[in-house]
Nucleic acid binder design. Sequence first.
DNA 1: GGAGCTTACGTCTCTCGTAACGATT
DNA 2: AATCGTTACGAGAGACGTAAGCTCC
Lengths: 93, 93
Amino acid sequence: MRLLQLHYFIEVAETENVSQTAKKLHISQPALSRSIRELEQELGVEFFSRNKHSLELNPQGKSFQHNIQKALEMIDSAVIDARRLNELKGAVP
Amino acid sequence: MRLLQLHYFIEVAETENVSQTAKKLHISQPALSRSIRELEQELGVEFFSRNKHSLELNPQGKSFQHNIQKALEMIDSAVIDARRLNELKGAVP
DNA sequence: GGAGCTTACGTCTCTCGTAACGATT
DNA sequence: AATCGTTACGAGAGACGTAAGCTCC
């Protein structure tokens, strides 16, 4: 499970469209399709209902989307907080 | 920023000892040392005070440790929840 | 001198993009 | 016929382990 895969998943979950998301993320369509599929295989969970032509987020996918989105936001905040503390370093007289 | 790097950071932050943590994680000492350093370089923040022989977690490091630990737990929970929903799939008559 | 962190280097795995295919509308 | 998702393959980048160097107790 890679961090980038999780970001990719969030974007695809919002649009339910790989081609469109690939353009937005500036990566190729196959690379994005593979990332999502490998994530599902590794976790042993299918997040999308596939009919060989389109994707639809299922209940597991919706749950995962919600939880992972919060986790990613938390990581972003952790970085921002650390950088802020780093800026203040030595600012106390 | 890799997910594995964050896990490594959490472990090293707890012990403040790379060698010991490397044995526990079953990776080499240099690989672990590099992972931590690369994480710091990428984020532009130093998490440890170094005196060329030992490490000590600084305020930025403590903040990051706390926040990232919660984020990683949230990711774990997200996976568990998704798997649970997957098991229940089709269980409703 | 022993314990600990870092740098150098070769190898190997993995990810990506291009190309080709199958399916659906 | 056109659009969308998936698979195949070659190339490039990245991560790890071994070996070597340097510092502190």
